[in-house]
Design a protein around this nucleic acid. Sequence first.
DNA 1: AATGAATGAGAGTTCATTCAT
DNA 2: AATGAATGAACTCTCATTCAT
Lengths: 214, 214, 214, 214
Amino acid sequence: MPRPRFAKLDPAKKEAIFGAALEAFASNGFDGASYNQIIENAGISKGAMYYYFDDKEDLYATLVRHELEEILQHFHELPEVGSAAEFWEMLVELVRETQAFVVAEPLKLKLLRSLMKMRTQGQLSPLLQDLYELGEQFSAQLLKQGQEIGAVRTDLPFELLVSLVTAVDEAGDCWMLENLDMSDLKVMGNYGLVFSDLLRRILAPGDIKFEKSD
Amino acid sequence: MPRPRFAKLDPAKKEAIFGAALEAFASNGFDGASYNQIIENAGISKGAMYYYFDDKEDLYATLVRHELEEILQHFHELPEVGSAAEFWEMLVELVRETQAFVVAEPLKLKLLRSLMKMRTQGQLSPLLQDLYELGEQFSAQLLKQGQEIGAVRTDLPFELLVSLVTAVDEAGDCWMLENLDMSDLKVMGNYGLVFSDLLRRILAPGDIKFEKSD
Amino acid sequence: MPRPRFAKLDPAKKEAIFGAALEAFASNGFDGASYNQIIENAGISKGAMYYYFDDKEDLYATLVRHELEEILQHFHELPEVGSAAEFWEMLVELVRETQAFVVAEPLKLKLLRSLMKMRTQGQLSPLLQDLYELGEQFSAQLLKQGQEIGAVRTDLPFELLVSLVTAVDEAGDCWMLENLDMSDLKVMGNYGLVFSDLLRRILAPGDIKFEKSD
Amino acid sequence: MPRPRFAKLDPAKKEAIFGAALEAFASNGFDGASYNQIIENAGISKGAMYYYFDDKEDLYATLVRHELEEILQHFHELPEVGSAAEFWEMLVELVRETQAFVVAEPLKLKLLRSLMKMRTQGQLSPLLQDLYELGEQFSAQLLKQGQEIGAVRTDLPFELLVSLVTAVDEAGDCWMLENLDMSDLKVMGNYGLVFSDLLRRILAPGDIKFEKSD
DNA sequence: AATGAATGAGAGTTCATTCAT
DNA sequence: AATGAATGAACTCTCATTCAT
């Protein structure tokens, strides 16, 4: 089922195809996007597209994997952290970088989120299931690391933690895109602290002490 | 776009229509559900359906509103709480009831979630936008109350809080449906505490003190 | 899978649909016939066709069943025969009638034969399998009757006999269509004797005595 | 339309092409087989295939001719027979050999039969028409020989005899493939007698005497 | 002598919706 | 108040074939 000779294609056409696909899938989800329209917008013939990709799902999977790998690579070398304090500092930085990505590439974010949507509702095909797990791998790896140095709680099922982190991330990203003037980067910078603190609240181990602040 | 004379219909037919629609929309989302099939499964004529509802979206909105109102009504009279402590106690109870609903009516939950999906991605039509806000109203009201008695933080934009609560709720519900043996109600009961604690962590005001627990 | 409300359709349109389908299926077989072209030639809209028939196969099956029943009904009341001699006399008459049908309705013959073709090669869907058995039923019933009164051999597997009769019929029909001037009905009449004798040679029981005739 | 420089090709590739084509055409018939898939399965480039063969039909015709010639060559030197009795003895042997071929090479049999199918229904292109006649040539030659020594009837049009022999052969082969456990070669041997007797019944001259056997 | 990228018409099927009755 | 026949654009995908290299 993997796609064959798309790799060695004229980069301009490649970009045209990925561009059209990104636009369509991000805006309308997998089912909602029209493959015909993607093909048309990419400016290639029907047969050509089916020469590059087995089918609609193959294109979708290829695109998602492409974007996913780009992101994962970007966060590839997480700094080694030795203490919980260092872990949370790293998280702040991580969240800031993520937000920068969200603002810079909202379509890509929406694309990745479309995969999450498909998972919750309906069942994912094996091909897409693999992709999903690849995507979760990053959060999972981070959480694992946090648990090893005692920064992250171990009293809840691991998958639940992953789901929670994903959900809060998504809610945060989504809210930012809707409510923040994107040009106002300073304000945005501050929200890095806000969201990393939210994650810490959720993930911190033990009984949290809720102290009155006013 | 509001729905017309559907109200004074034979309740049995009403139920047939809603049943077929719930099944279809919950399982396949708005776009994925086939209006033709809903009509057929409802055992009603094409013309009749278009006599009751303007179009597919009208049926969807009517159904969602119906379920939403049923739920809102159920939680209508929240007990008045005077202190933060009482607020958090109430929240525990609330989460438990919500979970019971999730287990009892997974389809209805999926239906409501389909609305969330449409919102995050793609744009909601004004009609559905109204519905979405109606759905958020409950969380919003709860948060408002919490803020008034000092239980809920006021340092973040209100809409962000609402989004966060919604996201965590959804992640929790979703995780439960996937991972819990539904007959194992005792275990489920315990998760009421887990999820309400998660909400408290997010919503509690001030700088949270993360104390080492081991 | 059966077809729904095609029955109570304006007979003229019914005929248009059956006509287009007969022409296409008879000439090109099931796979070879273009459903799109059938629809166009029938002069109805695509949606309308799918309103009458579930799919291409449904139309094909409906058409074949229609023609089959017409034929079976025509031969419904076979005269009761009490002796082998009467059986062979009846066979002569039967073959003559069949030949008249072949000449009158070559397309219908080709249609029925297309079903046979599909069976030998590739496997028939359950729907078409039923049809095929309905078609064989006539020959089978005839053979059964012949066996009961001792006119037809019982030393070979019954299914083989059916296959042989079918094959010889087909070869004969086919040859007639190709080689006979159809207007020359007198000659054709004689071939009734020829073909019924051929069938008798195959079906007659016992060791046949081949006597020199010259 | 004849095929060009395919002859002097690496025999291994030749075999690969013929193998893929045989598999596809035998299983799906001419129309049903996908030329693209044949090319892919042959492990050859698109351009190469169109370099060797004009088009799909050219490959089909070349393959059929190849198999046909192989068979015809196998039966090339029929033993000279001087009497009707010897003729029928030879026929028994011939049928047995044919059956062995059927069991050994069912795909090749199906391929040849696909040509018959195309002939009966739809019209054969001149190229394929030639092929068909080549195939009939063997039966024809046999019948001619039989007629010369008085073993085969001369009261029917020659072409009709050929058609009948072909049809009965086909019915027999087909029935064997379907109903016989191929490993049960002993039983199969007996059917050599059955089928050659069937042919004799059809072909024997004069008025056949049907004698009661019980 | 041979490649494989590219074509675009056409396949069967589903869709939400309309409208004469 | 309600029917259900009818629409035709759009859907994903396959086809045999061409042609610049």
